[in-house]
């Protein structure tokens, strides 16, 4: 029964702060729509960055600076307060005639993948937010309420995926909202809607997980053995992602953590440690006063 804390990233079932797959139900939405999410199939991404632009247009996200990075065709570098969708470009040498069906005979493989907030089942950003600015919605997604955020910046290092960030000059934290406003109106998110090849698929998470499993099977059948899902496992370190991916290489190749964990998992233990530490401090300092009288300089044992 004791939660396994070290060896695996699995979540302790029934731990006080760890939620179930019913993220909205756990957070006070009694009658809520199905949990919505993204399945981003990177094997059909054409690296067009429509998702990046559509997101910016919809959310009026500021321009993120003009910098030629030399990181292949990626000049956005990563997710940030001003980039809520980010398309990664990875140029790889592959053995010729790989026959993978995705790669080519050119000896080059060019991976493209659109990254986004994972809308974690157990979202560290949301857990640590002291103001309640970060919020679980009825769709099971995670959003920042810009009218509440005071820019404490705690969510930034809390996120195991490096997603949420503070905006310079503005001070507040920003990230993908899964287009909460649109969802409320029965519309799909701007990025998914724009995506020319349906690399970004939006829908009820259950359905997406099934579809994704089928797609992996299909790709494996077609000889693309390297196809794998990332973030689809409800038993992983964050309880599964609301936005998960089909990747063609190791996660870290795309800048993703191989085994992310919501640190809230360890929080009860940490609170116990802290309590113990506080008592230790009290006791340790108090001990220094024991058996000694003031005004008796020089007398020591």
């Amino acid at each position: 029964m004791a939660p396994q804390l070290i060896a695996g990233a699995r979540l302790p079932v029934g731990a006080p702060f760890i939620g179930s797959q019913d993220a909205a139900g756990d957070t006070g939405y009694t009658d809520h729509p199905p949990r919505m999410g993204f399945f981003t199939d990177t094997s059909i991404c054409i690296g067009c960055k429509a998702c990046e632009v559509a997101c910016k247009e919809w959310n009026a996200v500021p321009e993120d600076g003009q910098r030629l990075t030399g990181m292949s065709f990626d000049n956005s570098v990563g997710l940030s307060a001003d980039t809520w969708r980010h398309v990664a470009f990875i140029e790889q040498s592959v053995s010729t005639g790989s026959g993978t069906g995705i790669g080519t005979d050119a000896g080059v493989r060019w991976l493209m993948a659109s990254d986004v907030c994972k809308h974690c089942t157990n979202a560290a950003c949301l857990d640590v937010c002291p103001t309640g600015a970060l919020l679980r919605t009825e769709f099971g997604t995670v959003v920042v309420q810009p009218d509440v955020c005071n820019g404490c910046g705690y969510c930034v290092p809390a996120c195991p995926y490096g997603v949420i960030d503070q905006r310079e000059g503005d001070g507040r934290a920003w990230k993908c909202t899964m287009c909460y406003d649109r969802l409320g109106n029965g519309q799909e998110p701007a990025c998914a809607k724009a995506c020319p090849t349906e690399s970004i698929q939006f829908g009820p998470l259950d359905e997406l997980r099934e579809r994704a499993a089928r797609r992996v099977t299909q790709l494996h059948g077609a000889g693309v053995g390297e196809a794998r899902l990332y973030g689809a496992d409800p038993d992983d370190g964050v309880g599964g992602d609301g936005a998960f991916f089909l990747l063609l290489d190791e996660p870290e190749t795309y800048g993703l953590p191989p085994d992310p964990v919501v640190t809230t998992r360890d929080l009860p233990a940490m609170w116990r440690t802290a309590g113990l530490a506080a008592l230790t401090l009290l006791a340790g300092v108090a001990a220094g006063f024991l058996g000694r009288r003031p005004f008796q300089p020089g007398r020591s044992r």
């Binding site: 570098v77 290092p157 996120c159 960030d165 870290e252 800048g255 993703l256 953590p257």
Partner: peptide, 12 residues
Amino acid sequence: SYYGEPVINPPR
């Protein structure tokens, strides 16, 4: 890694 870029965002 992805071009040596951090996986997580360092605290600001």
